[in-house]
């Protein structure tokens, strides 16, 4: 927690009125310091603005108020060098092979062909994609495609990696194994990781700190330190403290989830009973 890698100061997002509704206050104000090399996970009820927060931090969206900085420089409306993003949806390019997908971002960065080949082959072997380098994404399973997207991000050697529910579409076992992969690449690269997830166990297992968000407008209501070692893996789920930590996160999240679910429950009966 020594050096601040990225900072969010009173960041908020208001979507202007549309379709007969008033302005929607989606997010904030949020303050957060990302320490260099830490893993921070953000959990929150659906619709609380988690993805908006990630897009603002990435420079993909502009906040309505507040400021963001990455490595001391302000972020606004453009993705800074050194930030990599892995999206929730499959973002592999279907018309390119796995190898070409991974090298896609490098080819325009003015790097020599030999250097590209070395870096891509490195990442491919690190992510265990050797047998599929010549395959097209359509020939791969969902988990393998997400690996390709992670590899495409890694090959650019980002110092801050933002992941938006990257394993959300995968089954539980694959998710735990992908979590191990994420910890492995985190140890190897030393990157700072900002992970958005709806899975409490995933957040507690992977993160150094878990930020719990309230229902809309999303604000941080708790920040839980896990204090796992750097060499942790998915087996921490068997650790005695794991239950206590997930319990604490869920207690805070439960009230908030009820608020957001309550909103729709209140709307349902009128339609359902008529």
């Amino acid at each position: 927690m020594s050096v601040s890698h990225a900072e969010l100061r009173e960041v908020s997002k208001v979507f202007p009125a549309a379709g007969g509704q008033g302005d929607v206050h989606a997010l904030g104000p949020i303050d957060l310091n990302l320490a260099k090399g830490e893993v921070i996970a953000v959990v929150g009820p659906s619709g609380c603005g988690k993805t908006t927060l990630l897009e603002i931090l990435a420079g993909l969206a502009v906040p309505s108020g507040g400021s963001i900085s990455f490595e001391g420089r302000p972020v606004r409306g453009e993705v800074p060098d050194g930030i990599g993003v892995v999206f929730q949806e499959d973002a592999s390019l279907p018309w390119l092979t796995v190898w070409d997908n991974i090298s896609f971002g490098l080819r325009r960065a003015g790097i020599g062909a030999a250097e590209i080949k070395r870096r891509v082959d490195d990442v491919i072997s690190f992510m265990g994609l050797e047998d599929f380098a010549r395959a097209y994404p359509a020939q791969l399973s969902g988990g393998m495609r997400q690996r390709v997207c992670i590899a495409r991000t890694l090959v650019l050697e980002p110092r801050l990696i933002l992941l938006d529910e990257p394993f959300g579409a995968l089954d539980q076992q694959t998710r735990l194994l992908m979590g191990d992969e994420l910890l492995r690449l985190w140890r190897k690269t030393g990157a700072t990781i900002f992970l958005i997830t709806h899975a409490i166990d995933e957040a507690v297992m992977l993160a150094d700190r878990v930020a719990v968000m309230s229902a809309r407008p999303g604000c941080f209501i708790d920040l839980v330190k896990t204090e796992w070692g750097r060499d942790r893996d998915s087996r921490v789920v068997a650790d005695g403290r794991f239950g206590a930590l997930t319990g604490r996160v869920w207690t805070r999240l439960r009230e908030e989830s009820l608020k957001s679910v309550g909103r729709s429950i209140n709307r349902v009966p009128a339609a359902a009973l008529s």
Binding site: V79, V85, E89, A91, L93, R108
Partner: peptide, 18 residues
Amino acid sequence: INPVLIKTARVLKLSPSE
């Protein structure tokens, strides 16, 4: 068009013509 492809282009810092 899958919007995530356009976001990907922005993350990879492609120019509008690219």
